[in-house]
């Protein structure tokens, strides 16, 4: 089970299914890092389907801002071979209104992605090997929002640290796949709930490039969702803030709703 658009979900570290509880062993940092990632994933599976509205605020170095409004629908596909499905509908800016992005995540391969362009009523299959490109002009790249499965990284546990007023596990992961924009990503998970609180993205030359903070966690049943995500690019001085409305889970969406043929019907 590979999750898609994980950052937009408010959860960032991917993983496969359930694992034994984390043991206090400092000897094998790699195994320990993997366990934390898997536990974070285990606590975030079983949500079936979800809907949420969000505002994307783009901020440049001078403080000029642009706002984009999106609605998202997501479908969890259970099992290790099934990739999740998602739909992003743009409501603003007005010239993008009605544009829909459909993603079928794939385990161990590029995702399938289609774009619906309302002015032409055209559905376009687009290349999804784009990892380092900006997602609709934001500081999030496609790689950030379409996180791959746990097997695509090597992990290293870096110890416990205070963060966001709590105690956090600090875990480094390095991409094993090609075309990544990063040499490493360091994440902080709070020890109580395994929620990601902060992520540092290092560029291919090993310099700190971007910092993501996740805040305003809200509980839906047993699931936690961050309401505000802030991605700050240290190189360009630009910031992207994602503000989420309330999440709805188990709304009865089915695979047919996420079909290419249904794209033109989505409003």
């Amino acid at each position: 089970m590979k999750r898609i658009l994980l950052v937009l979900f408010g959860f960032v570290i991917p993983g496969l299914v359930a694992v034994a509880p984390v043991r206090a062993s400092a000897q094998d940092a790699a195994a320990r890092g993997l366990e934390i990632a898997r536990e974070a994933d285990r606590r975030d599976s079983g949500w079936k389907d979800a809907r949420v509205s969000l505002t994307m605020i783009l901020q440049d170095r001078k403080g000029n801002t642009r706002e984009r409004k999106l609605r998202m629908m997501m479908l969890e596909v259970p099992g290790e071979t099934g990739g999740d499905k998602s739909i992003a509908i743009f409501d603003s800016p007005p010239d993008l209104k009605g544009t829909v992005l459909l993603t079928h995540a794939k385990v161990g391969a590029d995702d399938d992605q289609w774009l619906f362009l309302p002015s032409l009523k055209r559905v376009k299959r687009i290349s999804s090997s784009n990892k380092t490109g900006a997602f609709f002009g934001s500081e999030f790249t496609y790689e950030d929002i379409a996180a791959p499965e746990v097997g695509k990284f090597t992990y290293r546990y870096l110890g416990k640290e205070p963060c966001a007023g709590q105690t956090c596990y600090k875990v480094e992961r390095k991409p094993k796949y090609r075309n990544s924009g990063y040499s490493a990503i360091v994440s902080w998970f709070d020890t109580a709930q395994y929620r990601p609180q902060r992520m540092d993205y290092y560029d291919r030359k090993g310099r700190l490039l971007k910092v993501l903070t996740l805040s305003g966690y809200r509980k839906y049943g047993r699931l936690w969702r961050a309401q505000v995500l802030t991605m700050k690019n240290l190189k360009t001085g630009r910031t992207t803030i994602l503000k989420y409305g309330p999440w709805k889970f188990g709304t009865g969406l089915s695979a047919a709703d996420f079909s290419k043929a249904n794209l033109r019907n989505i409003r």
Binding site: K131, A134, T141, G181
Partner: peptide, 8 residues
């Protein structure tokens, strides 16, 4: 993708 190290 990512021409010139940016989002181009």
């Amino acid at each position: 993708y990512g021409i010139g190290g940016g989002g181009g």
